[in-house]
Simulated scan of single mutants.
Amino acid sequence: MTAYVVIDLDVDDPAGFQQYVDAVTPLIEKAGARNLLIDDDCLTLEGDWRPPTLVIHEFPSKEAVRAFWDAPEYQPLKALRRRHSTVRVVVGEAGRPGH
Rank of each mutant, 00 (worst) to 15 (best):
M1V: 11
T2I: 10
A3R: 06
Y4T: 07
Y4E: 09
V5F: 11
V6T: 11
V6D: 07
D8Q: 12
L9D: 09
L9C: 13
D10K: 15
D10L: 14
D12E: 09
D12W: 09
D12C: 08
D13C: 04
D13K: 01
A15G: 07
G16S: 08
G16H: 03
Q19S: 10
Q19M: 06
Y20N: 00
V21I: 14
T25M: 07
L27D: 00
E29H: 10
E29P: 05
E29Y: 03
K30R: 12
A33R: 02
N35R: 11
L37E: 04
I38G: 15
I38Y: 14
D39L: 06
D39Y: 01
L43T: 11
L45Y: 10
E46L: 14
E46F: 14
D48R: 04
P51S: 07
P52T: 08
P52Q: 11
P52H: 11
T53V: 15
L54D: 05
L54N: 05
V55L: 12
I56A: 06
E58W: 01
F59K: 02
P60T: 01
P60C: 00
S61A: 05
A64P: 07
A64E: 07
V65G: 00
R66Q: 08
A67H: 03
A67Q: 06
A67I: 03
A67V: 05
D70V: 01
A71T: 05
P72N: 00
Y74C: 01
P76E: 00
P76A: 04
L77W: 03
K78H: 06
R82G: 09
R83F: 08
H84P: 08
T86Y: 11
V87F: 13
R88K: 14
R88I: 09
V89H: 12
V90S: 15
V90N: 12
V91T: 12
G92S: 14
G92R: 12
E93P: 08
E93S: 14
E93H: 11
G95Q: 09
R96C: 15
P97F: 15
